[in-house]
Amino acid sequence: MLLIHCPYCKSDLPELEFANAGEAHLVRPADMSDMSDADFADYFFVRDNPKGVNLERWRHAHGCGRFFNAVRDTVSDKFLKVYPAGEPRPSDAEVKALLEAQAEGRKDGGSGA
């Protein structure tokens, strides 16, 4: 069972309180009427699901109730970072730095705090 750092509660909390909510940073277009069917399919149905770094949404469902975003490495199953919904997508450079920090063998429990 993971320990997940909730960016709103500001503490590491048991996974049982959380729910995964899929890929992050998929922005719902303000005006979808001009979207082609193919673009809509990309937006709503198609997901990358890469091995390794995933930017994903979680909800502190049985806690503060807030949705937030996380950078999680699906190989190590570790949270590299959590941040409130609405904050910008981490840059590639930042993701790289997070991965390097992980590779250095941090032993702090890795809840993304």
């Binding site: 949404r57 909800r59 807030r66 949705f67 919904a85 609405g86």
Partner: peptide, 12 residues
């Protein structure tokens, strides 16, 4: 959950 999701993340 569906309502909260849209409220918090699409229509904040």
């Amino acid at each position: 959950v569906h309502m909260e999701d849209y409220l918090q993340t699409e229509f904040p």
